Amino acid sequence: MGTEAEPQSKVNNNPIYPKKPIEENTWGDFIWNSRTGQVFGRTGTSWAKIFIFYVVFYAGLAAFAGLCYYLFSLTLRLDQPKWILGDSIIGTNPGVGFRPMPDQEENSGSSLIWYRRENEADAAVWYNQLANYTDAIENPEEVDSLQTCSYDNGLRATEIKSCFVDTKQFGTCNKNNAFGYRSGEPCFLIKLNRIFGWEPEPFGLNKRGQYDPDLLLEDLDRQKNLPDSLRKYITDGVKSNIDPSKFLDTIWISCTGENVNDKETLGPVNYWPRPGIPGYFFPYYKQLGYQSPFIFVQFLKPLTSVLINIECRAWAKNIIYDKIDRLGSVHFELMID
């Protein structure tokens, strides 16, 4: 006997329900879904929780950064570096600088001073640098911390006061003379780099700052390659000065050709006002309006159309010299066509 077929709706005991059509979401629904009340895929409650979380998170992050900055600032002083002299990266050996110098952005690492004597624009590139530098010295800030120091009045730099640089003492190295560049006898400004708290140890002075003739000879003999002209200037100056200790309180400067040929082609050298920087300009303590001391070196008869290598060196008992690392000296080249 055959069996009757089950009704279609009873197959597998699962009633069949009509399927609802699937609604596709659009970009407009993502921005604002009116059915679910979501904005950019989140409800208002979800957005509020996220907002509160990030407010608390970034507030905590800012507070932590501020605490770190505050604790770090407690270890610093505004009036001086945290690490000075032997404890600092700079150390206790001042570098030597010169002006004018090539534009380091256009000629990185270059130290060649070249110009055509008959070309005014060429010469102006160099002497204008010196004019701008000395103009800033001649028109300093109006501050009470600057004073006129000299060996005679006994005034020198202190932690609060520093010394004027008198630009009237530089002879023919002045802007009215174009610093000698038009005449082919160029001047170069030689200075020391600033080191906070550094003081020179002059030749011939004992620990109490008193002149000792035997110590002077020993100090001069220890200096390798000390130019004979500078040695004679120092020994003659001691004899002619009433107070040799003041005269010797100096960082001596010498500029010569690096090689034998350079010395012959460089010619005579003049130092304005003398071949040294007085010790009363030191130490540097970041005094308000501080002026870095310098001298001018003038090369009187340099040979033209020849590249001349020049080395300028600073001399004191606590200035270390190393030609390879350029410690205690500076190198540049001069060529005049």
Score class of each variant (00 low, 15 high):
Gly41Cys: 05
Arg99Thr: 02
Tyr69Trp: 11
Val39Thr: 05
Ala65Val: 15
Ile84Val: 15
Thr92Cys: 13
Gly37Asn: 03
Lys82Met: 09
Thr75Ala: 09
Ile22Thr: 06
Gln38Ser: 12
Trp32Thr: 03
Ile50Gln: 09
Val39Gln: 07
Ser88Glu: 11
Gly37Lys: 04
Asp79Lys: 07
Ala63Met: 11
Arg77His: 14
Arg99Ile: 11
Pro100Cys: 06
Arg42Ile: 03
Leu71Asp: 00
Gly37Val: 04
Gly41Trp: 00
Asp87Asn: 15
Phe40Gly: 03
Gln80Pro: 00
Arg116Gln: 10
Trp27Arg: 08
Ser110Cys: 15
Gly28Asp: 08
Ser108Gln: 11
Thr26Ala: 07
Arg117Leu: 14
Ile52Leu: 12
Ile22Pro: 01
Ser111Asp: 15
Arg117Cys: 06
Gly66Glu: 05
Trp32Tyr: 13
Cys68Lys: 14
Ala59Val: 09
Trp47Cys: 05
Tyr58Pro: 02
Gly95Asn: 12
Asn93Ile: 08
Gly60Phe: 09
Trp114Phe: 14
Leu85Lys: 12
Gly86Ser: 14
Ile113Glu: 04
Gly109Leu: 08
Glu24Pro: 05
Glu118Leu: 07
Val39Lys: 05
Pro100Val: 13
Ser110Glu: 15
Tyr58Glu: 10
Asn107Lys: 15
Ile89Tyr: 07
Leu67Gln: 03
Gly37Arg: 05
Phe72Asn: 13
Thr36Gly: 00
Ala62Ile: 15
Glu106Thr: 12
Tyr115Asn: 00
Asp79Leu: 07
Tyr70Arg: 01
Ile113Pro: 04
Leu112Tyr: 01
Val39Cys: 09
Ile22Tyr: 09
Thr45Ala: 14
Trp83Tyr: 14
Ala63Glu: 05
Gln38Glu: 15
Val55Ile: 15
Phe53Lys: 08
Pro100Lys: 00
Gly28Met: 00
Asp79Glu: 12
Thr36Ile: 01
Gly37Thr: 00
Gly44Trp: 11
Ser110Phe: 00
Arg35Thr: 11
Gly28Ile: 07
Arg35Tyr: 03
Gly86Glu: 14
Gly37Ile: 04
Trp27Gln: 10
Asn93Gln: 10
Tyr58Gly: 00
Arg117Gly: 05
Gly95Ala: 10
Phe30Cys: 07
Phe53Gly: 03
Tyr54Val: 15
Leu61Ala: 13
Phe57Ala: 15
Gln104Asn: 01
Ile113Thr: 07
Leu112Val: 06
Ile31Ser: 01
Asn93Ala: 05
Gly91Pro: 07
Ile22Lys: 07
Thr43Glu: 09
Leu76Ala: 05
Leu61Phe: 12
Val56Thr: 12
Gly95Leu: 03
Leu74Lys: 15
Pro81Trp: 01
Leu78Lys: 10
Val96Lys: 05
Phe64Gln: 02
Phe98Cys: 09
Glu24Tyr: 07
Asp79Phe: 06
Lys82Ile: 07
Ala59Arg: 02
Pro94Cys: 05
Asn107Ile: 04
Ala63Val: 00
Ser34Gln: 07
Ile113Tyr: 02
Thr92Asp: 06
Lys49Ala: 12
Val56Pro: 08
Ile50Val: 13
Ser88Arg: 01
Asp103His: 11
Gln80Phe: 06
Ala48Tyr: 12
Ser34Thr: 07
Glu118Ala: 10
Lys82Ser: 12
Gly60Ser: 13
Glu24Cys: 08
Ser46Ile: 11
Tyr115Cys: 02
Gln80Tyr: 09
Asn33Ala: 05
Ile31Ala: 04
Phe40Cys: 08
Arg117Val: 13
Ile84Gly: 03
Gly109Met: 09
Leu85Cys: 04
Arg99Lys: 08
Asn33Leu: 04
Trp114His: 08
Ile52Asp: 06
Pro81Gly: 03
